[in-house]
Nucleic acid binder design. Sequence first.
DNA 1: TCCCACATGTAAGATGTTACATGATTTA
DNA 2: TAAATCATGTAACATCTTACATGTGGGA
Lengths: 210, 210
Amino acid sequence: MNMGDRGATPGALDAQGEQGTQDPSGDGLPPTAWAVLGLLSFPGERTGYELKKWADSSLRFFYWSPAISQIYAELRRLEARGYVTSRRSGPEEPRAKRAYAITEAGRTALGRWADSGHDAGTPVLKHPLLLRVWLGHLASPGHLRTLVEEHIARTEGELKEVRDALARADGVEAWGHPQIALRWSERRLLSELDLAKAMLGDLEELGPGA
Amino acid sequence: MNMGDRGATPGALDAQGEQGTQDPSGDGLPPTAWAVLGLLSFPGERTGYELKKWADSSLRFFYWSPAISQIYAELRRLEARGYVTSRRSGPEEPRAKRAYAITEAGRTALGRWADSGHDAGTPVLKHPLLLRVWLGHLASPGHLRTLVEEHIARTEGELKEVRDALARADGVEAWGHPQIALRWSERRLLSELDLAKAMLGDLEELGPGA
DNA sequence: TCCCACATGTAAGATGTTACATGATTTA
DNA sequence: TAAATCATGTAACATCTTACATGTGGGA
């Protein structure tokens, strides 16, 4: 029983060229840099710390939750390119900090990026629970069940967070696109819950008890 | 209008400790190594090349599609640990290759991993299309629409692949858990299609025309 | 007064990709 | 006989995380 020889798409193993997170605008920036620049495309200036908080309360649900140290690194890179400028806080402000703002060049590059490519890139899903299920013959059935239930609980928590974010976004003008992304996330998490419950049923059918 | 100061979960920005792909078994192996070892937990020996093909036709849909060079690297690491052994093909075989098999130590470690943790790890989703939508104010509405439609087409292709894999799996004995993961993937892709269509509607509502 | 949030970074290391290099065998 | 698939690796590089290091300001 050789399970390995069931190639679905016979396409070449190498040359998998275009990865899901590539940059079709030809600007050579990593996806993280575009996301940071995108955050700065909204009016106002922000510190790296604020950017991180914002990403954690919005982009996190469908894209990305970077380490704070990486935000700072990307900001430096963007500044070196001239896509953002920074300003040290003066003595009038209580805290010493560095606030970043997008430049005209940055806005131009970002616009090019936003309109480039007929393909946004392949979504990447890495779902450790599913790996555990796939390898379910190795674990006790009860353990698998526990893991799925834990996943359901976490997903419910995330759903609540998305709904809170949606409630906060309500009323802010010109907030359209971010809200659509949040709505997508809400529906997605609802579906994730359905999926998990259906899988619980499949698991039960396979090996009852536990 | 400072949109950055809307932190949802006020939890510490640093110390985000446990990442979605961590190893709770305490064995210190990266997630990729467990996946490779998991592939080898099914009966029979396999080459790195076969492992890559197999991953691409199954694990890819919910977990992972590694570079072939990384498979080879992980196999070397696992062999150094004594979790797998390899055998060069003899002259009786037409092709020169190296086939790997799991050892008892490997099976023990993998069993420990499979039963460890009350939490399989946070799923990671990186969806470039959603980043584009979130930053929709930067693109022309028609372009956004094109991207969503492209995503729908790709997803339909993936759905077909999963269904093919499911059809191939049908009839193989003791194939239970992998099939459950594939069924989950089928439902997930169906939902992804729904999500995209609903988003198309939201987008239309926001800015008609294009 | 103590803790938490604010705020910014450096250094080391892990993970993973792409490009390169090579060659045999099978299939059209 | 040409192309695709089988098959294995190295080297360079990009990305990203964790741990470390440091300090201020505000609230309980």
